Measured scan of single mutants.
Amino acid sequence: MKVTIEENEETGKFTIKVKTEDGEEKTIEIPKENLEEILAKLPPNVEII
């Protein structure tokens, strides 16, 4: 699983794009305050880009 994290400076939010092993892609946008909480919940086999 690969996770790409991009900061949107205009909105102050982060866009998180997840690509699973089977090629499925999902995108979510979260507030900056929630980034550490989300990262802590990721499984250890995740590659963060």
Rank of each mutant, 00 (worst) to 15 (best):
M1W: 06
M1S: 05
M1Y: 05
K2Y: 11
K2H: 08
K2W: 13
K2F: 09
K2S: 11
K2R: 13
V3H: 01
V3N: 01
V3C: 11
V3W: 05
T4P: 01
T4L: 08
T4C: 14
T4I: 12
T4V: 08
I5A: 01
I5W: 04
I5Q: 01
I5Y: 04
I5L: 05
E6T: 13
E6Q: 09
E6H: 09
E7W: 15
E7D: 05
E7H: 12
E7Q: 09
E7Y: 15
N8D: 09
N8C: 07
N8R: 02
E9W: 12
E10T: 09
E10M: 09
T11F: 03
T11L: 05
T11D: 14
G12M: 01
G12H: 04
G12N: 05
G12W: 02
G12V: 00
K13P: 00
K13S: 13
K13W: 15
K13I: 14
K13Y: 13
F14R: 14
F14I: 15
T15R: 10
T15W: 06
T15F: 06
T15Q: 09
T15E: 14
T15Y: 07
I16V: 12
I16D: 11
I16S: 00
I16E: 12
I16A: 00
I16L: 04
K17T: 15
K17I: 15
K17N: 11
K17M: 10
V18A: 01
V18E: 01
V18M: 12
K19N: 06
K19S: 09
K19A: 08
K19H: 11
T20I: 05
T20L: 10
E21H: 08
E21D: 10
E21Y: 08
E21R: 09
E21A: 13
D22E: 07
D22S: 09
D22G: 08
D22K: 06
G23I: 01
G23W: 02
G23H: 02
G23Q: 03
G23P: 00
G23M: 02
G23K: 02
E24D: 08
E25C: 13
E25Y: 10
E25T: 10
E25A: 04
K26V: 14
K26S: 12
K26P: 01
T27H: 07
T27Q: 06
I28T: 04
I28N: 01
I28G: 01
I28S: 03
E29I: 14
E29N: 06
E29R: 05
I30K: 00
I30F: 09
I30Y: 03
I30Q: 00
P31Q: 11
P31W: 13
K32G: 09
K32V: 07
K32C: 12
K32W: 13
K32Q: 06
K32M: 06
E33K: 06
N34F: 14
N34V: 13
L35Y: 04
L35V: 04
L35E: 00
L35S: 01
E36M: 13
E36G: 09
E36P: 09
E36H: 11
E36L: 13
E36I: 09
E37H: 07
E37D: 09
E37F: 07
I38W: 15
I38M: 11
I38S: 03
I38T: 08
L39F: 04
L39P: 00
L39C: 05
L39Q: 00
A40E: 06
A40R: 11
A40F: 01
K41A: 11
K41P: 01
K41Y: 08
K41R: 12
L42H: 01
L42M: 06
L42P: 00
L42C: 07
L42R: 01
P43N: 06
P43R: 08
P43I: 07
P44F: 11
P44N: 09
P44K: 10
P44Y: 11
P44H: 12
N45Q: 06
N45D: 10
N45E: 06
V46S: 06
V46R: 03
V46A: 10
E47Y: 03
E47N: 05
E47A: 07
I48A: 02
I48G: 02
I48N: 02
I48W: 11
I48H: 03
I48L: 06
I48M: 06
I49Q: 07
I49M: 08
I49E: 06
I49G: 03
